[in-house]
Structures are given as structure tokens and as C-alpha cells.
Simulated assay, not measured.
Amino acid sequence: MPIQLYYHPYSRAAGTLWALEEAGVAYDLVVTDILKGAQKGPDLVTRNPMGKLPTLVDGELVVSEAAAIALYLADRYAPGRLAPALDDPQRGTYLRWSLFAPSVIEPAVMAKGAGWEVKEMSAGWGRYDTMIASAESAIADRDFVLGSAFSMADVVFGGTLRFMMDFKQIEPTPTFTAYVQRLDARAAYQRANARNQAMRKELGLQ
């Protein structure tokens, strides 16, 4: 049975298409109308009590959270190609920046946008400017997070940067812009982007 992805083109599941295309596995989309609250219906909630997208079903296994899904796909379907081996020292860097995206970039951007008053020592994401400097350090003077080799970390980390820049939540610095341009040139990203655009048109969302 192909993998099933509970999906809507205006959700984080749109980015999961890129991870699936990079992994090179067959998948079916379960279109879930988040504009009508379908993600809170029993079909999805029985699989993911959060009632959120993306949610991936692989046989009997359910995986939620975009970063977790991407890392799962790399480990299961593209080990050594998209994910460093367990005993590869590069795996630490791979995990570091993959998890930096949802646990530091996203909340730092939200905190800045919402004007949250938090103490840097209490907030796991620190300060916005420190987050930006740290994110730039991950890709400074290299093509990808792991250097010259593309990995699933770039789907998670780079996909987050692209999204934030598209919505003007992060300044498109020269480092970020050049990095995202390299990611945009990947055939798997272009396939995923084309499918997302086609789904938006099919659903009348353009």
C-alpha cells in the first residue's frame, strides 16, 4: 500500500510533498479541507489527536509533525542518501539543524511577530537576532547543512527558511537567499511545487 499523506496545499503538508519526492516513495494524498475544519473530523483525529496536518500513514504506523515525518522518511527509505548513518558523526549536525527549525526558528519568529515578552534564559528559542545568526552559521560557506551533500535536514531547515522568507517573517539575507535558490533547483522540489500548484488549482484556491 502506498503511503498516505493527510494533506492540504495551504498547510505544512505542502512541504511534506518535497520530503516524499526526495525519498522517492509512492504516496497518495488524502485531501483534508482545513478551511472547513475537516482536520478535526474523526477520520484524522483517530490517527492524530491533534487534528493537524501533515499526518502520514505508512501501513500500521502513523507519524505526525512535519520534521518527524521528514526524518522518518529519510531513515526508512533513503538511509545513507538523505540521512547519515547512526554511527556517522555528521548525524549530530543533521539532527541539530533539523530540530532547530521547529524548536527555535518557528517560535522565535512567532514571539517577535506577536510581541511576546519572554526572558531569553527561560525561552528555549532565545532571542530572534541570535536565532538568525545561528541559522546563518549553519550554512555559511557551504552548499548545504552537511556541506556539499544534500540531506533531509535541508528539506526541514531550508523549507522553514523558504516559508518564513516568502511570508516576510525573516529577512532574506544573501546567505539565506542563495541557499534557498540552491534548494529550489532540485528536481524533487520542483515536482513537489508543481503538484502543490496543481492541487491549489484543482481545489479552486488560486
Results as ranks from 00 to 15, higher is better:
Met121His: 14
Ala135Ile: 14
Ala85Thr: 02
Ala101Gly: 08
Ala135His: 14
Ser148Met: 12
Thr46Pro: 00
Gly124Lys: 11
Pro42Ile: 02
Glu120Phe: 01
Asn48Ser: 03
Asn48Leu: 03
Thr93Ala: 05
Gly59Lys: 14
Met50Ala: 15
Ile132Lys: 14
Leu71Ser: 08
Ala111Phe: 11
Gly41Asp: 11
Ala78Asp: 06
Leu20Thr: 05
Ala78Pro: 06
Leu61Ser: 00
Pro54Ile: 00
Gly113Arg: 06
Lys112Arg: 15
Ser137Gly: 04
Val145Leu: 01
Leu61Arg: 13
Pro107Tyr: 12
Thr46Lys: 11
Leu35Ala: 10
Val25Asn: 11
Lys36Gly: 10
Ser151Glu: 00
Val63Pro: 10
Leu44Met: 01
Lys36Gln: 15
Tyr128Asn: 07
Ala153Ile: 00
Asp129Met: 14
Gly124Glu: 03
Pro102His: 04
Phe150Glu: 06
Val30Phe: 03
Ile105Asp: 02
Leu44Val: 01
Thr130Pro: 02
Thr93Phe: 00
Glu136Ala: 12
Pro42Glu: 14
Ala26Ser: 13
Lys52Leu: 13
Lys52Gly: 01
Met50Gly: 13
Glu65Met: 04
Thr46Ser: 07
Asp87Ala: 14
Thr32Glu: 15
Asp87Leu: 14
Val63Phe: 06
Pro107Ser: 12
Ala138Gly: 10
Leu53Gln: 09
Gly147Leu: 04
Glu21Thr: 13
Val145Trp: 09
Ala78Val: 09
Gly37Ile: 05
Lys112Val: 04
Gly124Ile: 09
Ala68His: 08
Pro54Ser: 00
Lys52Ile: 02
Pro84Asp: 11
Leu20Arg: 10
Leu35Thr: 13
Gly126Val: 04
Gln90Cys: 05
Gly147Ala: 04
Trp125Pro: 06
Ala68Pro: 09
Leu56Gln: 08
Ser122Met: 05
Pro107Ala: 13
Gly59Leu: 14
Val118Tyr: 12
Ala19Thr: 11
Asp28Val: 04
Arg81Gln: 12
Ile69Gln: 05
Lys112Thr: 07
Arg76Glu: 12
Thr93Gly: 09
Asp143His: 14
Asn48Gly: 05
Ser134Thr: 11
Tyr72Phe: 06
Gly92Gln: 09
Lys112Pro: 03
Pro102Leu: 04
Tyr77Asn: 04
Ile69Asp: 06
Thr93Val: 03
Ala108Asp: 12
Gly113Tyr: 06
Met110Ser: 05
Ala23Gly: 08
Arg76Pro: 01
Tyr128Asp: 05
Gln90Leu: 14
Leu44Ile: 01
Thr130Cys: 06
Thr32Met: 13
Ser148Asn: 15
Pro84Leu: 08
Leu29His: 01
Arg91Asn: 07
Gly59Ser: 13
Leu29Ala: 03
Ala111Cys: 11
Ala138Thr: 09
Leu95Met: 11
Ser64Val: 05
Gly51Arg: 01
Gly80Met: 02
